[in-house]
Simulated scan of single mutants.
Amino acid sequence: MAKRTISDLNLLLAVDKPQGCTSHDVVARARRAVSERRIGHAGTLDPLASGVMVLGLGQGTRLLGRITQDTKSYIADVTFGFETNTDDAEGEPTRTVEPAAELFDAAAAARALASTVGPQMQVPPAFSAISVGGVRSYKRARAGDAVELPARPIEVRAATLISVSEVDGAPVWTVAYTVSKGTYIRALARDLGRMLDAAAHVSSLRRTASGSVTLASCVSLDDLSPETARAKMLDPVEVLGVPAIAVEGRHLDDIACGRRLPGGLMATADRAVGEGDTVALVNGGALRALGRVEAGRIAMSDVFPQPICGVRP
């Protein structure tokens, strides 16, 4: 097996995904732009959607499974008149309902959206990446199989009406959503239509934030280069949301060898640390390792041979 080469870029980066491309396409374009093969992404955006997508480059890929980003924010256009088999504008219409006049009323729209806020159970779209018997749901749906996914707990934390407009005679609600991880905005639109004895789908979707990462942190794929990647890299500790401990140079050999560090270092953390907590071990503006508090000492969980850059003072 060929030995993996050392990455020149070891960081987390947010890109503004364009509409019309897949998450895989974004990774492929990023690899070409920065000449780095080792790139992955945290979370998936549908081809219809645009907006915030977090990439890991080099050693940064090892953080992707730890990025929870529990809260996500979107701006969506919900178009009434018909449902589709994908719950968005890319699918085939499956049910049509003539929009009622009340759907053009902004006050009524705001009240309806307010009633959808809170914890609830959501049935994901059949055309989704959820695995069913080891096969992606969308593959079964494309093959014509009847897909029935179980409902899952989600939470709508905010659903704020931005505007009501009319497109080709149909009412379109532009909505700012803040939701828990795993929430499908497409399914919210579908269920909103049914709740109102109507039919609806998402016709436009833009992710404006993923956890602490916002559009302001993003770089355009057209502008992506090694230089812009370094200039716009994210603080990995902030993205992970874990306590940080600044370690001195004398601790780096112990970290590299996977040896436990003394518990006294926990007193220097930037927030309270307790048994079982994950901590970020930082030196020289870079993430050197992730540790776990065990029996009053810090045991290594992940050690990064090339430090992950971007830690802010």
Rank of each mutant, 00 (worst) to 15 (best):
G56A: 11
L57E: 03
L57V: 14
G58T: 11
Q59C: 12
R62G: 10
L63T: 00
L64V: 12
G65K: 04
R66Y: 09
I67W: 07
D70R: 10
S73M: 02
Y74Q: 01
A76Q: 04
F80R: 02
G81I: 08
G81F: 02
F82H: 13
E83K: 05
E83C: 12
N85D: 15
D88S: 06
D88P: 09
A89N: 05
E90G: 06
E90W: 07
E90A: 13
E90I: 05
E92P: 07
P93W: 09
P93C: 08
P93H: 07
T94E: 07
R95Q: 02
T96F: 01
V97I: 14
V97L: 06
A100H: 02
A101T: 14
A101N: 10
F104Y: 13
F104R: 11
A106P: 14
A106C: 10
A106F: 06
A106G: 07
A106E: 13
A106W: 08
A107K: 12
A107P: 02
A110H: 09
R111E: 15
S115A: 13
G118M: 12
V123Y: 03
P124W: 04
P124N: 00
P125S: 10
F127R: 03
S128Y: 12
S128F: 10
A129F: 12
I130H: 07
S131D: 14
S131V: 06
V132P: 09
G134R: 09
R136E: 08
Y138F: 15
Y138V: 08
R140E: 03
R140H: 14
R142S: 08
R142E: 07
R142P: 07
A146P: 00
V147A: 11
E148P: 06
E148V: 15
E148G: 00
P150A: 02
P150V: 02
A151S: 15
A151K: 15
P153V: 06
I154F: 02
I154C: 04
E155K: 08
V156T: 11
R157T: 10
A159Y: 07
A159M: 08
L161P: 09
L161M: 12
L161H: 09
L161F: 13
I162D: 13
S163Y: 01
S165Y: 05
S165H: 01
E166V: 14
D168C: 08
G169A: 11
P171Q: 01
T174N: 09
A176L: 08
A176P: 08
A176K: 11
A176Q: 14
Y177S: 00
V179Q: 01
S180P: 10
S180F: 11
T183I: 11
Y184C: 00
I185N: 01
I185P: 02
L192I: 13
L192T: 10
L192G: 10
L192A: 10
G193V: 02
G193R: 00
R194D: 05
R194C: 04
M195G: 12
L196Q: 13
L196F: 08
L196H: 07
D197H: 12
